[in-house]
Structure formats: C-alpha cells, structure tokens
C-alpha cells in the first residue's frame, strides 16, 4: 500500500500573528510554526495502516517555502519513509485549486493507493484541498474521517456528520481521505526516529506558476459586536469581581 500524507506547516495557536504593512499577509519572521493539527492525525492514520499491513510506504507531501522542511523532518522522524517538498519562494498560494493542482501534477505518476490530509488548515482554513486533489486524480473521496479500515482493495471510513451522527462509507481505492482531529492518538517521535529522519530523502520540486482564481485582498483583526464587561485587576480582585457578577448580575443562587 502506497500512502501519501499532506502535511502543512501553520502558525501555532499561541504564535503572534503580526501583519506586513501591505496588510495582505503575516510578517512570517515573527511567527512560530507547527504541524497543522488534523494533519498530525492524518499522518498517524497512515502510519498505522502501514504497520498493520506490514508493508508499504508513507510519503509526506508538503508545499511551501523552505521553512516547511521543519515539519517535513518532524513527520519523517515519526516514521514516514520519504518526502516531497514542493518549493514555493514566498509563502504558499492562497487559492486551494492552485495548491491542489500543483499536488496533482506532482503525484499523478506516483500512483498512490491512498492520500490522507487534514480536514482543514489552521491558517487559511479552506477545508477542501484533500477533496480537490482526490477529484483531480479521479479518486474516491471522503471527508471528516473518524476511523478507517482497509478491507481487500477497499477502504471503509467512519465519517462524522452533523449533530452527533456518524456514517460508514465504503469505497474502492485509490481514495483521498481527509481526517477529523481525534480519530487516533498521534505518536511522538522517538530519539531513534529523529536520528533516522536525517538520512531520509526529501525530494525538492519547483512548481510552475499558476494563475489564482481567488486571492487575499486584505487581512485584518475582527471587531467585537457585543458589549463586553472587562473584569480586571489582580487575581484576588478578579475573583472578588467574578463572585459579585455571579451573585448580583447573573443571579446564580
């Protein structure tokens, strides 16, 4: 079984997000990057399938500037076999169709049985790259996977639906599956894994330039619609004020 995992590097949830003066992107020099949360689950799902079948290959695919090699190495140290880095110079495209098209151009001759991706990137949050790629490669697709099972030449996926419902969907391979967070317990890299990752291959590819169908005009901070009471002071003062609010304003008896 040959499995690709799309792994994206994104700002960590506690990272500052300062903007460049043209207000159309972040000042990346001040951003602390991590592996996209759901991609970490996607990687774990792929590694477990390879281990269960006792053969096959897990290949990390990532698109972006040089800084993304940090998460590529992290994925390799968790046990992925090799990686393809689609190298862009500035940042990454802000059109998911362009991203997916670059992935499909790169992957079309690799003939993967499975592609795993996260359901949503924590930066741009388009929520569609894995499905776009699957469709471009004429694969079966499924989203919001909570667990997967390989049966013969098919994959059975437990999908999350709205309002607490789930559904099993079975499809033939090749398939592109985007996973929901919480579907497994992602591993940490071992020391041996970290050492071994240094020797693994990262194939760097320069993609063609493509026209975008959508582009970011401006990025800005939201402003609050609601009137919010700020509860301020020392910890003791805050506690006193909160108790007062609970009793006298919200009227908790």
């Amino acid at each position: 079984m040959k499995i690709a995992v799309l792994v994206k590097q994104v700002p960590g949830s506690e990272s500052p997000l300062p903007m460049v003066s043209s207000q159309d992107w972040l000042d990346e020099s001040q951003v602390a990057y991590i592996m996209n949360e759901s991609d970490n689950y996607a990687l774990e799902e792929a590694l477990q399938i390879r281990e269960k079948n006792n053969d096959g290959e897990v290949v990390i695919i990532s698109l972006g500037p040089n800084r993304i090699q940090k998460v590529i190495r992290e994925a390799l140290s968790k046990g992925a076999d090799r990686a393809i880095h689609i190298q862009t110079d500035g940042s990454y495209p802000t059109d998911p169709l362009v991203t997916a098209s670059l992935f499909s151009e790169t992957l079309k001759d690799e003939n993967f049985d499975l592609i795993f991706s996260g359901l949503q990137s924590d930066d741009l949050g388009f929520g569609q790259t894995g499905v776009l790629l699957g469709e471009l490669l004429n694969m079966s697709t499924a989203t919001l996977a909570m667990s997967t099972e390989i049966i013969d030449n098919k994959i059975k996926v437990k999908r999350e639906l709205e309002a607490g419902y789930f559904q099993w969907v079975t499809m033939s391979l090749p398939a592109s599956i985007s996973v929901q967070s919480g579907c497994n317990t992602p591993r940490y890299p071992s020391l041996k894994g970290i050492m071994g990752a240094k020797k693994k291959e990262i194939n760097v590819i320069t993609p063609p330039v493509m026209d975008q169908n959508q582009s970011i005009k401006k990025i800005y901070a939201p402003n609050s619609a609601k009137e919010t009471v700020m509860v301020e002071g020392s910890v003791d003062q805050i506690v006193e004020k909160l108790v007062n609010i609970f009793r006298n304003e919200i009227k908790i008896t």
């Binding site: 059109d95 998911p96 169709l97 997916a100 359901l119 949050g125 388009f126 929520g127 569609q128 499905v131 776009l132 699957g134 469709e135 471009l136 697709t141 499924a142 989203t143 919001l144 999908r159 999350e160 639906l161 709205e162 169908n213 959508q214």
Partner: peptide, 23 residues
C-alpha cells in the same frame, strides 16, 4: 457551509476548475 457541503462542493470546484469560496 454544512458538513455535507464540505464533503461534495469541492468536487464541483475541481470538475469546473472554478473557485469555491468556502465558509
């Protein structure tokens, strides 16, 4: 932008090669 729309609308975008401005 329901869970169902997340699931199938990107496929239309890929078929038509036109953008899906999601969410």
């Amino acid at each position: 932008h329901s869970y169902q729309v997340r699931d199938y609308v990107p496929k239309i975008s890929a078929k038509l090669m036109r953008p899906f401005l999601a969410d």
